[in-house]
Design a protein around this nucleic acid. Structure first.
Length: 482
DNA sequence: TTTTGAGTTGTTCGA
DNA sequence: GTCGAACAACTCAAA
């Protein structure tokens, strides 16, 4: 009888377009296993919102595997220990998995390879999480790209030739090792259950991912180029949490988008704009694969000297959406209430934390990590560094978002701000993004009492901007000395 | 090796 | 209200 293959599920919770699973199925019976590592020895523990998503995504994958006549084995602990045990328990002679790119992944995969060999088994990694492997995209001189545009152009010169692969026909062993009940993992919040309404907002799992993709490509992508910047409208794909957990592959997205370009040439440009966002995801993963310190250290070493301050009260006001800047507060409340924030607003709130509050980008990175359903080490750390000015191809430090101007430009009709900051809902458009400038009569009529039911701005924009620019000048002075 | 062109997402100021 | 220029040089990538 053929020995089974352990398929070690990681950030690839799907059945279709999964090269490792196809290869495993060709060898014989497959034992799918997912390991939750919350030991904090190597892997960064998941944030609260991500745990909620993971619960539902695992549930979805488990039931899909059961429909196929199999199951998903759930185990908790260190992957090294668990995979060693499973090899012994099941007599499996191979572990197959998708390659991952987190800072700790390379060491972990090396250790798994070693323990597999020690047990007389093989460990094989497969692509599937990215469109391009980090080694495959380099500059003419063989070094990794540090600027997005040439990076993405180099990617586009390498066409994706193979279409996504279908779900393989899976065979399973007769005897199954034990599995922990998902509910025992307590991934869902309780007392309070802050995610009570999330099931209405999100549909974790591959089915939900493909539904979201179809909806986006059929109804939204045409207006993506401009619409993506308007947080009060829905012209973004909302695919990020699905991609984060690998419920859908970037290649599946790529091919579906390619079909749209062929069938609706008028939308071709907008589709390319969308695909370049997939490109940013690739860029971030490649950067972290090359620079594993990204989540902790500034990519631009000069920023080690940047005079970040410690302002815990201001950071708390930012987290709670109580800064007194309506667009900032709207974003932070959307995040808290839904596990998501519109991309445009992510930039505004991040700029505000780093530049208006002069707080370290890691404060923001940590908060986003805990609150975002799509929290991903690579995208999160690269994007925060991008905003802070220390990242690859980063925004220049003197580019400081004006939260009033941004609100007036991108949330002109106030739909987004009024939704998340209802205490300002009755203010006229003219003052919605700067209530402190509204005459008393207007405030009273709208039921707004500044400093009472909505805060005064915690910093003055003009002053904060000047202070931030001075901090940057300080950085220049320090590095000039060095 | 040297040179050259270019670089996600902005703001402010002054004409 | 609208427009162009300045903002700060610097580093990257390719010719």
């Amino acid at each position: 009888m053929t020995a089974p293959t352990l398929y070690w599920y990681r950030h690839d919770l799907r059945l279709s377009d999964l090269p490792g699973l196809v290869a495993a199925s060709r060898r014989g019976p497959v034992l799918p296993v997912f390991i939750l590592d919350d030991t904090e020895t190597r892997e960064r523990p998941l944030g609260g919102a991500s745990r909620w998503w993971l619960h539902h995504s695992l549930q979805s994958l488990q039931s899909a595997l059961q429909d196929a006549g199999g199951d998903l084995i759930l185990r908790r602990g260190k992957p090294e220990a668990i995979l060693r045990t499973l090899l012994e328990e099941t007599g499996a002679d191979a572990i197959y998995a998708s390659r991952q790119y987190q800072p700790w992944s390379q060491d972990l995969e090396q250790d798994i390879k070693q323990l597999a060999e020690d047990a007389g088994a093989v460990f094989k990694r497969f692509p599937g999480t990215l469109l391009y492997e980090p080694e495959a995209v380099t500059t003419g001189s063989g070094t990794p790209f540090k600027v997005f545009t040439p990076f993405w152009r180099a990617c586009l010169r390498q066409p994706i030739e193979n279409p996504p692969v279908e779900q393989p026909k899976l065979g399973f062993p007769k005897v199954w090792p034990s599995s922990e009940p998902l509910d025992d993992w307590q991934l869902l919040p309780h007392s309070p259950n802050w995610a009570a309404s999330w099931s209405d907002l999100w549909n974790p799992g591959s089915n939900g991912a493909h539904t979201a993709l179809k909806l986006f490509l059929s109804e939204r992508v045409g207006r993506y180029a401009e619409g993506r910047d308007v947080p009060g409208e829905t012209f973004t794909s909302k695919l990020s949490p699905h991609l984060r957990f690998g419920e859908i592959s970037p290649r599946q997205i790529w091919w579906a988008a390619k079909t749209v370009k062929r069938d609706r040439p008028a939308d071709s440009e907008a589709v390319d704009k969308f695909l370049s966002e997939i490109g940013w995801r690739e860029f971030c993963h490649h950067l972290v694969a090359q620079f594993p310190q990204m989540p902790e250290q500034p990519f631009n070493a000069k920023f080690a000297h940047f005079p970040w301050g410690e302002y815990p009260e201001a950071v708390r006001a930012w987290q709670k959406g109580q800064t007194g800047y309506p667009i900032v507060d709207a974003g932070m409340r959307e995040l808290w209430q839904t596990g998501f924030m519109h991309n445009r607003v992510r930039m505004i709130v991040a700029s505000f934390l780093c530049k208006h509050l002069l707080s370290h980008w890691r404060e923001g990175e940590t908060w986003f990590w805990d609150c975002l359903l799509d929290a991903d080490i690579a995208a999160n750390s690269c994007s925060w560094q991008w905003v802070a000015g220390s990242g690859a191809d980063a925004a220049p430090y003197f580019r400081i978002f004006n939260p009033v101007a941004q609100g007036e430009k991108f949330d002109k009709d106030g739909r987004y701000t009024r939704r998340w900051v209802p205490e300002l809902a009755d203010l006229p458009d003219k003052y919605l993004h700067k209530p402190w400038e509204a005459p008393d009569l207007v405030l009273t009529a709208a039921g707004v009492r500044l400093g009472d039911n909505y805060p005064q701005p915690i910093v003055d924009h003009k002053t904060a901007r000047e202070t931030a620019l001075a901090a940057y000048a300080h950085l220049k002075a320090v590095t000039a000395e060095a």
